[in-house]
Amino acid sequence: MAFENPSRDRIKELLKNAGNIAVVGLSDKPDRTSYMVAEAMQSKGYRIIPVNPNAKHILGEVCYPSLSDIPEPVDIVNVFRRSDQVVPVAEEAVKINAKVFWLQLGIFNDEAAEIAKSGGLEVIMDRCIKVEDAILLPGGK
Rank of each mutant, 00 (worst) to 15 (best):
G19I: 07
A40D: 13
S7F: 09
L59S: 03
A116L: 03
E72M: 08
L103S: 08
I96N: 10
V62H: 01
I48F: 07
M41I: 07
P73F: 00
R47T: 15
N17S: 13
V62S: 02
Q42T: 01
P65Q: 09
Y64P: 06
K44S: 12
A38L: 14
E132Y: 01
G139Y: 15
H57A: 02
L136Q: 10
D133L: 11
L59E: 05
K117Q: 11
P65R: 09
L105N: 14
I96A: 09
P71F: 00
E114G: 10
N54D: 09
P30G: 10
I135V: 15
P71S: 03
K12D: 11
N17L: 08
F101M: 02
K44H: 09
S27E: 08
E39K: 15
I76V: 12
V77Q: 00
L26S: 05
R127A: 10
C63Y: 13
E111K: 05
V74P: 04
A40T: 14
A134D: 11
S7V: 04
S68A: 15
A55R: 13
V74K: 00
A2V: 03
P50L: 12
K56E: 14
G106S: 11
N109G: 06
A90R: 03
C128S: 14
D9T: 13
S66T: 06
F101A: 02
F108C: 04
G19V: 03
S27N: 08
H57V: 06
E92Y: 01
G25W: 01
P50C: 10
D9N: 09
E111L: 00
Y35A: 08
K56W: 11
A2S: 09
L67I: 07
N54K: 10
V131P: 05
A18R: 03
L15Y: 09
E92K: 01
S68T: 06
F3E: 15
L15Q: 08
A116P: 03
D9W: 05
A22N: 02
P6H: 04
G25I: 05
Y64D: 02
K56I: 03
P138L: 11
S83W: 00
Q85K: 07
N78G: 03
K29C: 07
A134E: 06
E91N: 06
G139N: 15
K117G: 09
P65D: 15
P88C: 05
I129H: 01
P73C: 11
N5D: 12
D9H: 10
P30W: 08
A116W: 00
V100G: 00
P138R: 08
C63N: 10
A113P: 12
V79P: 04
S118N: 13
R47L: 03
N109Q: 03
P53S: 12
I115E: 04
D28W: 00
P65F: 02
A40V: 11
E72D: 06
R32M: 15
A22L: 11
V74I: 13
K130Q: 12
G139P: 13
P6N: 04
K44N: 10
G60F: 06
L14K: 07
G60W: 07
P50W: 12
S7A: 13
E122K: 09
V123A: 02
M36Q: 12
E92L: 01
S68N: 10
E114I: 00
R127H: 14
R8V: 06
K99M: 11
H57Y: 13
V62P: 00
L137P: 01
A40M: 14
A93V: 05
E13F: 08
E4L: 10
V74Q: 02
I48C: 14
E13C: 04
A22P: 04
S43T: 12
V87G: 11
I70T: 00
